[in-house]
């Protein structure tokens, strides 16, 4: 099976502030983009896996984790996994960087 991957430029790396989340709408998908203290950039679906949902982009970022702002679930930015004692997973997207351009791979 052939998969078609789309690479979408979404931001200038140099514009992103560390420990901040950005909400990016690509068509009808809402993605939260985070740059963490060590400079890495991660992209996740901008929706908490908590049954009642809520966005992630406004959450507090600590190392490779973001805390969902409404229910305080701790979520890994790397693999989207919710940390114990809560359970769940958020969809993650691959992030590419070329020069100063950040791409999200869909």
């Amino acid at each position: 099976m052939i998969e078609t991957l789309t690479r979408i430029p979404v931001a200038h790396y140099s514009n992103l502030k560390a420990r901040a989340g950005y909400s990016i709408k690509i068509d009808d998908k809402e993605i939260a983009l985070f740059k963490i203290s060590n400079g890495e950039v991660y992209a996740l679906e901008n929706r908490s896996p908590h049954p009642k949902g809520g966005v992630l982009s406004e959450g507090l970022v600590s190392g490779e984790y973001v805390y969902c702002p409404v229910y305080d679930w701790k979520i890994s930015l790397v693999d989207g996994r919710v940390q114990a004692p809560d359970e769940g997973q958020v969809r993650t997207f691959k992030v590419d960087r070329e020069e100063d351009i950040i791409f999200i791979v869909l």
């Binding site: 979408i8 979404v10 931001a11 901040a20 950005y22 909400s23 990016i24 709408k25 690509i26 068509d27």
Partner: peptide
């Protein structure tokens, strides 16, 4: 404004 309030909308295609 950019860091905290902007919503970046991108149209593909």
């Amino acid at each position: 404004q950019d860091k905290y309030y902007a919503k970046h909308t991108i149209k593909v295609g």
